[in-house]
């Protein structure tokens, strides 16, 4: 009989006796200095949501769903029209990176430009996003995948392409409203193998931006904590309005969705989807993600 062993116990690729031990040997301890607090001022805009639900609708989750679903349609329609911006591909201010310079570690590449990593964005004008995910893969593997920027459009929805130009320079193209694209060149301003990549846009970027991604072991060998910090300067004009409208309330959402896809890709080897499955609607199939995307 082939059913004696539990076929679902996949823990045996680490230590079978301790299901919590997930490839700890692969996770290298990074000795980054303590970075900025995890939950920064921009970190968790959703915290207010349950309160909104409770106060506004006497605890009626259902009603909230229905109402917000409707309210959402304009936002989502805008998105479908191409209104989403993909600033996410972009990057941002990096507290972790800043901390590198105040800490004791000087394993940085230390080019002169790193002294003012946010200089591409005038003080106080950028939109900051910060988001973390724990991923059950070794930091080295996550780093390697990310470091090849040409991989990023696989999980960053609105990024069209990234072309690597040399060791530290790359060209980014993202989808913009009305079928247009926006583009910028980026340079890597800091890199610590398996632990940190920081970058920023160079001159004449359509969307000036800076960003960093760091990889640290989670507690107890439970995977790697990936943390992204981005700051971007929304463009002016109609494009800027679309961006502001869409991300004004929850600029974290798109980044969060992208990182979740990254996590799935790294852990499960694929990104979950229902697009193209049969459905008894007019089209006969599930043709898009639901219009509930950005807010609730």
């Amino acid at each position: 009989m082939t059913y004696t062993a539990n076929p679902y116990n996949l823990a045996n690729d680490s230590d079978a006796t301790d299901p919590r031990r997930i490839e700890p040997e692969d996770i290298r301890r990074a000795d980054l200095p303590p970075s900025a607090p995890l939950h920064g001022a921009h970190g968790y805009p959703n915290v207010a949501l349950p309160e909104r639900i409770v106060s506004g609708l006497a605890g009626a989750a259902l009603t909230t769903f229905a109402v917000t679903k409707r309210r959402d349609v304009s936002g989502a329609a805008l998105a479908l029209a191409g209104g989403y911006l993909m600033y996410r591909a972009a990057s941002g201010h990096c507290p972790g990176y800043a901390a590198l310079h105040t800490g004791t570690t000087h394993a940085t590449t230390g080019s002169p430009t790193t002294d003012s990593p946010t200089a591409v964005i005038p003080h106080g004008q950028g939109i900051k996003v910060e988001k973390s995910f724990v991923i059950q893969r070794p930091a080295s593997e996550l780093f390697a995948y990310w470091r090849n920027f040409e991989n990023l459009p696989r999980f960053m929805d609105h990024l069209e392409s990234v072309t690597i130009q040399d060791d530290t320079h790359s060209h980014w193209v993202a989808k913009a409203p009305f079928g247009k694209t926006v583009a910028w060149d980026a340079e890597i301003i800091n890199e610590i193998p398996d632990r940190l990549i920081a970058w920023r846009s160079t001159e004449n970027a359509d969307i000036p931006n800076t960003g960093s991604v760091s990889f640290k072991p989670a507690t107890g060998g439970r995977g790697t904590v990936l943390k992204v910090n981005l700051e971007y300067l929304p463009p002016a004009g109609i494009l800027g309005m679309a961006v502001a409208k869409l991300f004004g309330e929850e600029p974290n959402q798109q980044v969060s969705d992208d990182l979740r896809r990254f996590k799935s890709l790294m852990e499960a080897g694929e990104i979950p989807t229902v697009e193209g499955q049969p459905q008894g609607n007019k089209e006969g199939f599930t043709h898009r993600k639901p219009l509930l995307k950005t807010t609730m």
Binding site: Y8, N9, L10, A11, P19, R20, I22, V134, Q136, R222, G223, K263, S264, E267, A268, G269, I271, P272, T273, V274, K289, P290, L292
Partner: peptide, 21 residues
């Protein structure tokens, strides 16, 4: 998915990766 921390802990209905929404 069978790969995330919850699946590995035998908490299959808490899988991190299967929900596209």
């Amino acid at each position: 998915c069978g790969n995330c921390l919850h699946c590995k802990k035998d908490e299959w209905s808490l899988c991190d990766n299967s929900n596209p929404n």
